[in-house]
């Protein structure tokens, strides 16, 4: 019995209603913390951090580019893990999380590419180079788009979720191979003469705001993921009594206004 008691939180986590109600209480706090961290990080990074000796002010893009790239990659793993949990334990909620993670991850990957391209113009003199990291990011974007497209292609929601989960898992095994291959490919074709400032050698005054921005992006990711998941929960659980009550309640409060 003790062991079954220890697992109740896990089963409760699988209940869409529990998730919806709990995260509803967190949302205002999480939103406030996200806003605060992003404001602090951006003002600090854009205004107060000293400029880079070589790249001047254009290096300030790092405060968006690096955190966004972090989350774009971490988001893929989160999506795959959610999919795996869905496949193994048939947990309804984890498929919802997986589905929600796909558009967020794709948008962040796009942002990583976009900020990278803009950064490249003053640094390398061109918007696009087939740099190892940029190329890997592009492939990551395609992986995200594949999962997105596959999920929506099926009429049956369950089949779509399972297909997406399997593809996400296959992609997860592939990502390290893709990264290593692209890295190797890049060194083969052109020696890495131009390198951006790598993180460990950064001055603390530059590094601290970056840490703040990374924390901010983690909070933002959690916030966006929760919002997407909540909307999707309502859609999938539309026949449940608690969802119907919620909808009627929302309607009556709208009418009273």
């Amino acid at each position: 019995m003790a062991s079954s008691k220890g697992w109740t939180w896990f089963y409760r986590l699988g209940s869409p209603r529990w998730f919806y109600e709990t995260t509803g209480r967190w949302l205002p706090w999480l939103g406030a913390v996200t806003l605060l961290l992003i404001s602090i990080g951006l003002v600090w990074g854009l205004g107060f951090a000293p400029q880079d000796a070589k790249q001047g002010n254009s290096f300030r893009i790092i405060y968006l580019h690096v955190p966004v790239s972090f989350l774009a990659l971490a988001g893929y793993y989160l999506m795959a893990i959610a999919g795996a949990i869905g496949l193994v334990w048939r947990m309804k909620l984890s498929y919802v999380v997986m589905k929600s993670a796909a558009p967020i991850g794709a948008a962040l990957t796009f942002l990583a590419l976009f900020t990278g391209a803009i950064w490249g113009k003053p640094t390398w003199g061109t918007y696009w180079v087939w740099d190892a990291r940029i190329t890997s990011m592009l492939i990551l974007l395609f992986l995200y788009l594949g999962v997105l497209a596959l999920q929506y292609a099926f009429h049956s929601q369950e089949a779509g979720s399972k297909a997406g989960a399997i593809l996400a898992l296959v992609g997860t095994i592939n990502i390290p191979i893709i990264y290593k291959s692209v890295d190797w490919w890049y060194t083969l074709h052109q020696p890495a003469t131009i390198k951006l400032t790598s993180a460990p050698s950064m001055h603390p005054d530059m590094f601290q705001p970056l840490l703040v921005m990374i924390a901010a992006l983690y909070c933002f990711y959690a916030l966006a993921l929760i919002l997407f998941t909540r909307a999707e929960i309502l859609r999938r659980e539309r026949d449940a009594t608690w969802v119907r009550d919620l909808a009627l309640q929302a309607e009556s409060s709208r009418e009273n206004e």
Partner: peptide
């Protein structure tokens, strides 16, 4: 920003807009 302003601010603007969209879209859907 000593000539780099257009790059930095475009990156900031597009990032903030995309991130805002990621929050507004699910709220609308909700």
């Amino acid at each position: 920003m000593a000539g780099h302003g257009e790059y930095v601010w475009t990156a900031v603007l597009v990032s903030l807009l995309t991130m805002a969209w990621l929050l507004v879209k699910p709220l609308q859907q909700h």
